[in-house]
Design a protein around this nucleic acid. Structure first.
Length: 275
DNA sequence: CTGGTCACCTGGAAGC
DNA sequence: TGCTTCCAGGTGACCA
């Protein structure tokens, strides 16, 4: 489920419950997720969690060791990962519960059926090294002005959907919110990014921010349930206008919505009112 | 460099 | 009912 809004909602659920706590143990029940995770706890067990920040769809957990050293845990939810909090002692693990971060009073547990999620520990700030250092702007970064956005987008001959999805200019538009933002902006997802006027690109940036903000707000409204056994209802709380709605009438003009495949991923749009 | 394809996994839904 | 096929929110390796 995780696109940027879901990751941000996850961060807002985890951080207040965990920051300031000491990590007592790391339990791994699989040798690898996307990459090997066996020795995950070696460097960070016994450290205090200072902060959980987000960069694109990555969460960056900063740990301060008793000896003054600092380590970073970078986690990614892949396609199907989710975090859940339990008061200690946590109940027995269920299927696909791969990692427990056991803190002094609370356990954060990662569940991921498809195992595309990832976790790694580094000494240095992961944001300064690839792949994170190569990412585009955060969508709400004030430095990403309409002018900057237009200049970067117009440098690419790829389709606008492809450029947004790549995260090379702005991060956070996964496959769902890509389709939604382009619908809102009235732009054909197949159009080459370099062939969109600066004015329409300014509008697109506004739509990206609007769509992501609304999704975060919808997820945030269920944060108080983050602790509960029922999991997170925030996902999909927002009904998509076009995503997964091929054949249904366009909410704007009534024409049937279409599904096409770009780079092996589905794109949903209105062939009539997106130009 | 670029763009395209595929692999990594499991599970749910749809089709026969 | 049961088998097969397709599809899924993300990334990154590999190839021409």
């Amino acid at each position: 489920m995780p696109e940027l809004p879901e990751v941000e909602v996850t961060r807002r659920g985890l951080a207040p419950a965990l920051c300031g706590r000491t990590l007592t143990a790391v339990v791994t029940r699989t040798p690898r997720l996307r990459s090997p995770i066996g020795a995950l706890g070696d460097a960070i067990a016994g450290s205090r969690l200072a902060s959980i920040e987000r960069r694109a769809k990555y969460l960056i957990w900063t740990f301060d060791a008793p000896d003054g050293g600092r380590h970073y845990l970078t986690s990614h939810l892949g396609m199907s990962g989710s975090w859940r909090l339990w008061d200690n002692p946590a109940p027995p693990p269920k299927k696909h519960d791969h990692v427990d971060l056991v803190f002094d009073a609370v356990t954060a547990r990662l569940n991921d059926p498809r195992r595309f999620s990832d976790m790694r520990v580094t000494d240095g700030d992961p944001r300064l090294a690839p792949p994170l250092s190569a990412l585009g702007f955060e969508p709400f970064d004030p430095a990403l002005t309409a002018e900057v956005f237009a200049r970067l987008m117009r440098a690419s001959s790829q389709s606008v959907k492809q450029v947004l999805l790549s995260g090379a200019v702005v991060v956070g538009c996964g496959n769902i919110y890509c389709s939604e933002a382009l619908f809102l902006a009235g732009i054909d997802p197949r159009r080459a990014a370099c062939r969109i006027s600066a004015g329409r690109l300014a509008r697109l940036l506004e739509c990206i921010r609007q769509v992501l903000e609304a999704a975060i707000a919808a997820g945030g409204s269920t944060l108080r349930d983050f602790h509960g056994p029922e999991g997170r209802d925030g996902y999909f709380a927002l009904t998509a206008a076009v995503y997964a709605r091929a054949g249904q009438p366009c909410p704007r003009c009534g024409a049937p919505l279409a599904r096409i495949v770009q780079q092996g991923r589905s794109t949903f749009f209105c062939p009539k009112c997106q130009r």
